[in-house]
Design a protein around this nucleic acid. Structure first.
Lengths: 204, 204
DNA sequence: GGATTTCTTGCAGTGCATGCAAAGTTTTAG
DNA sequence: CTAAAACTTTGCATGCACTGCAAGAAATCC
């Protein structure tokens, strides 16, 4: 079922290598100096490629920092379709994105820096959101394919919940479990936000 | 309490006038040609000011189109504080933003174009969100001042709900009532998104 | 009217982003 | 092994967003 790995070959390996170098350089520099004090030229230089090459890998400066791996995957949609139709929308989405959340936790180093950078440079959060917004429509359609709940709303709202959880996870410096944070947030969504009673514990 | 209107005076009137002209020009041009085919120079020319002047009024091209009037107001925060503390978060927010929603409906022409433009130029939605995200933190703090519910989550989620409702309202070409759309969305949030059919048993 | 404050404008400069075409490198084929 | 094909990197030129600065124009104040 896997369109299996024709073994990557020297060329693609070097490409991946350059890409990683660019991402790493971008994150490190922006983490150090702040978004405004890092130019594409700086990043390219740090990764030892020409500035022009940077744009062969990323469409924008932000993309190298925020990344495109997150909500971008069709995998999410496929997994969502795989969830039995009688599962309500919110838990279904949770189930569909869990693998991604685990991947993020597994790659903790990278994502913690990434989130810290985003927290310190609000302009970037924008980028993250817009990426997910592009796919929010797809997600909404996928949700609409299942029962009752308001699809567009569910897509937007779960997206927001993930974002908040991600930032919270980063704020805990990775000590909290991302998957649990997201699960808790989703529980609140499913159960209803109006209700102060069960969660008397408020962190902040 | 109002640092009220020292009567505007000729100068401020002209300023407001220029600003309106710039906004109108920006919306019209982008609506016609698409975001990428309109330069700041075009907008300035259409409003009959120098390009440099454009940036005396707006920090970015997007700002002229998306506007800053929406979630930006401290008024929302003040109104939120005015809501009795025993009202749950979601309805409290609803109450706090209702005047703004009514203002949007009242200025329907402008906002319908604005939403259409946003729908057609996804890059702009981003801008709207990031604006509200800036103030989402403030909103979260204000919510945190009241009872139990998870503040950051409530802020993010209500923001998403408003955005979805706004787009929906625009899609209906203003025929739906914005305030009702938002109220319905908020009801879902408060009541819980999970449950497509109230009759079905709770599975799990 | 003249002094002061505020707004407009031009100019010069930085940085992001894209298209194009000339190297350079890897892969494939003969 | 070598020549062609395929793909990547790079430099160059360009367009546009945005900023700082300083000079000019206009409204406001006295």
């Amino acid at each position: 079922m896997l369109p299996e790995t024709a073994p990557p070959g020297r060329r693609d390996r070097k490409k991946q290598q350059t890409k990683d170098a660019l991402i790493a350089a971008a994150l490190r520099l922006v983490d150090d100096r702040g978004l405004d004090h890092v130019t594409v030229e700086d990043i390219a230089a740090a990764a030892d490629v020409s500035p022009r090459t940077f744009f062969n890998y990323f469409a924008t400066k932000d993309e190298a920092i925020v990344g495109d791996q997150f909500v971008d995957n069709h995998d999410v949609l496929e997994r969502l379709r795989a969830v039995p139709a009688d599962v309500p929308a919110v838990p279904a989405v949770l189930q569909a994105i869990t693998p991604d959340l685990e991947a993020i936790e597994a790659d903790g180093e990278l994502w913690l820096v990434r989130c810290r950078v985003m927290a310190n440079n609000p302009a970037l959060v924008t980028g993250l959101i817009s990426r997910s917004a592009q796919h929010e429509q797809d997600l909404a359609d996928a949700i609409a394919a299942r029962s009752g709940t308001d699809a567009a709303l569910a897509a937007a709202v779960t997206g927001a919940a993930v974002r908040v959880s991600l930032m919270r996870w980063a704020a805990s410096d990775g000590r909290a479990r991302l998957t649990e944070l997201v699960r808790d947030a989703f529980d609140l969504l499913a159960h209803g936000l109006s209700d102060p009673r069960p969660t008397s514990k408020d962190h902040r």
